[in-house]
Amino acid sequence: MPLTQPDALLAIQASLADTSWADEPLLPMEDSGLAHAHLRLGESGWLLRIPKQSQMGLEPKAHLTYESTCFARAAPSGVTPTMAESLPLCPALPRGALVVKAIEGRSASLPGDLPALMRSLAAIHRLPLPASAECVPLLAPRDPLVSMYREVLDQAQYLADADLEPEAEQGIRHELAQFSASIETPQRPAKRLITFDAHPGNFLIDVDGKAWMVDLEKARYSYPGFDLAHATLYTSTTWDINSHAVLDSDAIVAAYAAWEREMGCTGRDQRHWHLPLRRAMWLWSVTWCAKWQVTSGAPPLSEARGQEWSRQHNSEALNAHVQDRVAHYLSPPVVRRMGEEFQSLVAAFADGSGTATQRSDDLE
């Protein structure tokens, strides 16, 4: 039942009876995400973050625990919303919900806000790495590169059924072979807490110019380079309507350099990993597009559990937007563009010269 329907809102309101927000009116917000719906809790300054599904593929209770832990672990960075309460599963909230601080701010404007985004990501990445036993329940794979490769391969099985142009599929599989080769490198970058969802649409910029990372469902202990890529890839910067921008290679290199300055020597030490992790993050994104293309037409699961991409969870406007983006990112010109971008960044990331040559041609 859509959250905008009166019966749904009344049921959710009843589930808040024993909380500090029992008397607050529920104000539906724009349906802008595939993983969550949001309700403002009146003028309290708080909002309900209600899972539509688990992108992590977890059962509802485990997912709620995972997501609340993401907010708790990132909180010391000072750039993520405060979480006040985790609401348990109930008939009105079959996947539970989180009460989080509503951040008042505007969408990111690129490339101007990239330094602010990089400062905030660095604040998260500088958090101390806990002992292995203390990482749970967040993902903390022994080898995040191999783990990412397996995740990409799992999604890549949908390429054959996604009705791609042969050139696009060949280009994706070529880059996948490059990713496979990078796994053979014995060295690995340092692990840190990362968001794994750092596309610009997930940031809000407050009146002081501070970038708040507001979506933490997929945080894990892995390589910061995945976040840097997600913040600057074409498939990320053109995803959200409100923060849409096409970056040229010089802007991309400048963003990475800003992050390195915030991180100091630990950032510079990861420079030679920028390109391999960027390619890996793009492959994750584009194979997810294939997965959504193939699976989103299915009806919702009979029970609220695990991962599901059914369009029936979303508004028509959101589905139309996602379909447009997915088709665009899977098109031959965009796949070709990404291969050219990777080539243009080789020298810049190798020596830190900060110069590259690819233009910001908009392929819309």
Results as ranks from 00 to 15, higher is better:
L121Y: 09
P224W: 00
K210C: 03
L345T: 06
V334G: 03
L98W: 03
L34E: 07
A17M: 08
A123W: 01
H125K: 04
S182I: 03
L16F: 13
R311S: 13
P276D: 00
Y329V: 00
Y223T: 06
Q307S: 09
G209E: 05
S182R: 00
G306V: 03
M281E: 14
W212E: 07
E184C: 03
T69F: 02
S86N: 00
S315P: 04
Y221S: 02
D208A: 14
D361Q: 15
Q307C: 11
F349D: 00
P2W: 12
M1Y: 13
W259S: 00
G45M: 06
E151W: 04
A245Y: 09
D18R: 11
Q53Y: 08
A17V: 01
M29A: 14
A254S: 10
H199L: 08
D250I: 14
A8E: 12
P51A: 11
A245E: 12
K52G: 06
V246K: 13
S44N: 11
D250K: 15
R220K: 15
E24P: 01
L176E: 01
H36W: 06
A198R: 02
A37M: 10
Q13C: 08
M1K: 13
H321R: 09
A133W: 00
D23V: 02
P2R: 12
A97T: 08
K191H: 05
Y329G: 06
M281Q: 14
Q13F: 05
Y234T: 11
H272T: 14
E165V: 07
A14T: 12
L64C: 03
A177L: 09
L233F: 07
D250E: 15
S20T: 09
A317Q: 14
L9S: 08
C70R: 02
V146R: 11
S68V: 04
S249L: 03
